[in-house]
């Protein structure tokens, strides 16, 4: 089967940035995403412990390259300064590119 190239955006952030990220996704008409709670070490020490509001969350969002640039530009502009957040992009192959 033929695989079509597209992008996977992965965001690991504090749980309280979740709403901001969902807002940005919505603004760019992206309705599909996967998220899960995670924990681990950041460059400044252990995160995802303690109070419920201090947990970490990981988003995985598949999107085409056009949208990707706008989305990561907005996330880095509005959230990088004040939230604990890391994002990275992976090239992936999907079967039905029209979905993303």
């Amino acid at each position: 089967m033929k695989l079509y190239e597209t992008k996977l955006l992965t965001i690991i952030c504090e749980i309280l940035a979740q709403e901001n990220i969902l807002d940005i996704l919505k603004k760019h008409q992206i309705s599909g995403y996967t998220k899960y709670e995670v924990d681990g070490d950041g460059d400044r020490g252990l995160r995802g412990q303690g109070l419920k509001t201090e947990k970490n969350i990981k988003f995985e969002i598949i999107m085409n390259e056009n949208k990707l640039q706008d989305v990561i530009e907005e996330i880095s502009r509005t959230l990088f300064a004040n939230y604990a957040i890391v994002l990275h992009v992976t090239d992936i192959g999907v079967l039905r590119p029209e979905k993303f």
Binding site: L16, E19, T53, E54, N82
Partner: peptide, 22 residues
């Protein structure tokens, strides 16, 4: 407040350091 505070303030005043108020 230490349960409600982080949830409200992190959104409303994200520039403030939660490590201080929590």
């Amino acid at each position: 407040s230490f349960i409600a505070a982080p949830a409200v303030l992190r959104h409303a005043i994200p520039q403030a350091k939660p490590s201080l108020y929590i």
